[in-house]
């Protein structure tokens, strides 16, 4: 619930910013963003009020909401999940994205793919070199199909 209140405040700030920013636009260019910004502001306010009401002691939710089906069930496996592994992987993905252009699509992808395989391996279970090799083959295959058959000009960078 505290998260909800924070989110609401951030979104209210966004909508105020959008309102102010849209002042600079022509009459027909600002109409729609304004309507949307106002709607966003009002809805966020509702969320804020909801959050405050529900945060009060003694509030009992009317219905027990089931966790939404698609997606967030982070602790299905019982453990709290591997947050550290996820953060490391995220860093690799950021590097991957940023290196695509300077290093080249293929090289950056093979490199980052292999690093991710290393991070995500289960010691004693994963045959790391097999996965890295498999990854490299998959990446190369896709890059070739895109470059040659589909003629998509993937960035070549320094190392192809």
């Amino acid at each position: 619930m505290r998260n909800d209140r924070l989110t609401a405040l951030v979104l209210i700030a966004v909508s105020i910013f959008a309102l102010l920013e849209s002042n600079r636009y022509g009459p027909l260019s600002r109409l729609f963003p304004r309507v949307v910004a106002v709607a966003l502001g009002v809805l966020s306010l509702v969320l804020l009020v909801q959050g405050i009401v529900r945060a009060r002691p003694g509030y009992r939710p009317k219905s027990v909401g089931l966790p939404s089906a698609s997606g967030a069930e982070p602790s299905v496996t019982g453990s709290a999940g591997d947050t550290r592994g996820m953060l490391f992987s995220l860093l690799v993905m950021v590097a991957w994205t940023l290196l695509l252009e300077p290093v080249g699509f293929w090289a950056a992808s093979v490199l980052a793919f292999s690093t991710l395989v290393l991070i995500l391996r289960t010691p004693g279970k994963t045959v790391v070199w097999k996965n890295i090799l498999g990854g490299a083959i998959l990446v190369t295959m896709f890059v070739l199909v895109f470059r040659i058959a589909l003629r998509v000009p993937l960035p070549e960078g320094l190392l192809w």
Binding site: S89, V117, I119, T122, G135, L138
Partner: peptide, 10 residues
């Protein structure tokens, strides 16, 4: 997952 996650991201 160690193969699927990087592949899907790729």
């Amino acid at each position: 997952v160690s193969l699927l996650a990087p592949l899907v991201f790729f």
